[in-house]
Design a binder for these strands. Structure first.
Lengths: 137, 137
DNA sequence: CTCAAAAATCGTAATCATTCCTATTTACAA
DNA sequence: TTGTAAATAGGAATGATTACGATTTTTGAG
């Protein structure tokens, strides 16, 4: 998922392309890992001086709903990153910097076989720790 | 993990066995799945009329820290269940009733091999959906 | 280009889960 | 039984998120 893809999705679905929406996409493009609302607010306040919570959360939800952002919960706070839509995979997530590394292992195929009669909607496989860079810092 | 195991752990570590602590353990013993602070409060208020948040959260944390309760985050709310300490496994979690089913698959071994130089502290593998009972309700 | 309708944003108040604080009560070891 | 450290009460404070009426902006038709 890149900036252009995301903008196309917005247009296709009939959402308006506003300056703030572009800024939010640019923020997540420039960041490489999971970021929370607070991080985004800091980025936008740097440019605009003040920003409404409504704008922040409405757009985070919209982007998540459109599949543009992935969401996860890190110690009680929602975090987002640009979707990597090319293929299904999971992530190692650094607890210090939020950066991620793709893990191409997905245990769902074998797991689903053991869940006959269960309706499966979603799953999560995440590994938490510290990336090489943060271990040295 | 059963009620007796949990009580023993408390004693061993020098924590006092109070009436409320026993009630909390009984609540989680009687429930079969992930429950949140709100559920616990409802249960205890039924018995005591009122209960301090402090008591609820302090004890939830204590039990989690002692390995008596497992914790997970379900739509921004912390949920707990009695630890199943006999062996390492993961869970299917019903979105409707919170009940769980053990999954004996853990992808960590193969995943860790792909993360040399990464410090791995923790991992989560959860499957979400609806259990057979809730599909019929 | 202009204008109106719909959508988006603003500023702020409200909500909800959780944490924190001080006074009081309780468990339990001596 | 008694002293004391630990636990609880009751409520205020915090922090993330949601809600809402008023205002502004985007966009597309004319």
């Amino acid at each position: 998922m890149n900036l252009q893809d995301a903008t196309n999705i917005l247009k296709e679905k009939g959402y308006k392309t506003t300056g703030k929406r572009k800024d939010i996409l640019e923020f997540f493009s420039s960041e490489d890992g999971y970021r929370c609302a607070k991080d985004l607010i800091a980025y936008l306040e740097n440019k605009y001086g003040a920003i409404s919570f409504d704008t922040i959360y409405r757009n985070l939800h919209l982007y998540h709903q459109l599949g543009i952002l992935e969401k996860t919960n890190l110690n009680g706070e929602k975090h987002f990153r640009l979707s990597c839509s090319h293929h299904h995979h999971h992530h190692f997530i650094c607890k210090d910097c939020g950066k991620t590394k793709e893990i191409d292992i997905c245990p769902m195929d074998t797991a689903a076989a053991k869940l006959t009669n269960y309706e499966i909607d979603d799953h999560k496989f995440e590994i938490y720790g510290r990336c090489p860079a943060c271990q040295h810092a």
